[in-house]
Design a protein around this nucleic acid. Sequence first.
DNA 1: AAGTGGTCTAGACCACGCG
DNA 2: GCGTGGTCTAGACCACTTC
Lengths: 240, 240
Amino acid sequence: MEITHPPLFLYERILGDIESRIVSGQWLPGHAIPSETELGKTYGCSRMTVNKALTQLARKGLIERRRRTGTRVARPRTESAVLDVSSIESEVLALGLPYRYRLLSCQQKSADASTPSFSTGAALLFLRSLHFAGNAAFCLEQRIINLEVVPEAKSICFDAQPPGAWLIQQVPWSAASHVISAEVADEENAALLEVPEGAACLVMCRETTTPESVVITSARLTYPGARHTVRAKFTPGNSG
Amino acid sequence: MEITHPPLFLYERILGDIESRIVSGQWLPGHAIPSETELGKTYGCSRMTVNKALTQLARKGLIERRRRTGTRVARPRTESAVLDVSSIESEVLALGLPYRYRLLSCQQKSADASTPSFSTGAALLFLRSLHFAGNAAFCLEQRIINLEVVPEAKSICFDAQPPGAWLIQQVPWSAASHVISAEVADEENAALLEVPEGAACLVMCRETTTPESVVITSARLTYPGARHTVRAKFTPGNSG
DNA sequence: AAGTGGTCTAGACCACGCG
DNA sequence: GCGTGGTCTAGACCACTTC
C-alpha cells in the first residue's frame, strides 16, 4: 500500500528526497545539506521552491538552519515529540529534584513468543533499572534493546548511563508509538517503587521503530500513580 | 509576560491578525475569510506573502481552503489535537462496538473552594454520566460546565446527548490541557464501572479554556485500566 | 466564463555570523 | 567581506469549482 503520489509538486519531491535520506540514516545528524542555491541548480528550479521545502523540514524539526553556516540534519532531542518525553533524568530535574539511577539487571536472550514485537530468534538485551527523584523511587524501567539493529549496545555498560539516554544518541530519526495504561503494583514492583501492594501505577509502553518498521527498542515505564502524571498541553495550532 | 514580538515579519502579522480573530471567537467556524488578492490589497503586499500566512494557518487546521469557494474558519473536530480524542462515542465505535450513554446526575451549583479551577461564585453545571461499549461500562465522566461562559447549557437536556459532543459544537477554538494519572477504583466507581474494588483505573482530566484563560469546562474521565489505554503515535515530522 | 487557491519564477534586499 | 538563510515582489500558469 502507500501509493499516494499522483502529481507530486516539485517542492514536495525535494522535501521527500531529503527526508528519506535523513530517515534512512543515509544522512546522519550533523550532516551538511547543500545550500538553497546549490539545490536550486540541482533541481533546475528557483531558490524560493527549494526554500519552501527546506522551511517545512525545519518546522518539522528534521533539519536545523543557520545563516552563513548553512543547513544540517538535526539531532533528535526527544523519544517522542507527541508527549515531549526527552529523558527521565530531565523529567526529574524539571521537578527540582536530584536525579539518581540504578541498574537492577542486564541479560542477553533471544526473542521468542514472549516478545512478539521482535522477530523470533533475534538477539535481545533485557534491562531492568530504577530511576530516583531525590530519595524516592520515581520510575521502574523494563527495557528491551534489539541487538540486531544496535549491536553496539552489547559492549556498553549501563551501570551509570540509563539505556534511554544512550539510545537517543545512537539511533537517528525514528518513529515511536505509545500506549498508556493503569495497573496495580504487584508485590515485587511495590517493593521496588516503595508503594503499598495494590497501589495504582501508570504504565507507559513505548516502542521505537526503524523506517522499515523493525522495533529498535521497547520501554515499559512504571510510575507510582500517586506521584506521577502525564501532562499534555494544546493550544490551537501547535501542530502547524 | 509574553513580549516576544520585536521585528515582526509581515506574513507573521497577517497570520497573527487572522488567528486572533478566530481564537477570540470574532470569526466563528464557517466565517468566510477575504481572498488572497483582497488581503494583499488590504496589507499592501503581494499575494505570495498572504499565501504564506494562510498556508500556515491551513496546516495548523484553523482554516479550510477550497478553490473557487475561498477560505473559511474551520470547525474544531477534536477536544485535543495532541491526544486525538474527539469524542468517547467515536472511541467506542473505533473498537467496533455499539455505543450507549446514560446520564447519572445533573445539578447546578456555585463555584467554591472545591472547584479551584473556576472563580468563586460562578454558576456551574455538574454532570455525571456513564459511557458504554456494547454491554460493558467503558468510561465514567464527571463534567463541570462553566455557565458564565456557556449559559446555553442550562436549557440543554443531556439525557440523550453527552455533554462533550454538545460542547464541541458550541465552543469555538479553544485551548485544552490534560493530566493523565492512575487511581484505584473506590467502592462507588467500582460498582459503576463493573470492576472489582481496588482495580486500577486510568484517569484523564481535561480542562478547556478560553483565550483569556477562563475555564470553559473540566472533564474527569475514569477508564477501567484493564480495558482501556491511551495511544499516541509519532512519526518524525508530524508537527510540521 | 470567472474567480479561487496552489505552485513557481527570477529577481531583490536584508540580517546574520563566520573569517 | 561574503555567503548563508529569510523575506518579499510582481508577475505567471494551472487546477479546480461553481456559475
